[in-house]
Amino acid sequence: MQVIINGENVQSSADTVASLLRERDLDPKRVVVERNRAVVAREDYDATPLNEGDTLELVQFVGGG
């Protein structure tokens, strides 16, 4: 299945947001997910399916002023 993650076309076998984060070795407590421009609440990661062509933003907090 092809999805767009942070602007790049990516092949993924994950079927939920949670499995996508596992696949990419990302800590779900540290990453915030936006799917098709809507924020996904952390407690919904398991229940949120991934579909062909979804656009995802995966962001985290970094240093800033």
Partner: peptide, 29 residues
């Protein structure tokens, strides 16, 4: 203050370094 960036852009997350109890002020940079 902290900023938000896409993961995998060469920056490590900063959260592990912030003492608990401090109030976070995320910016929209």
């Amino acid at each position: 203050t902290v900023a938000l960036r896409r993961v995998g852009m060469g920056q490590k997350g900063v959260m592990d370094y912030i003492p608990s109890g401090m109030r976070l002020l995320p910016n929209t940079s």
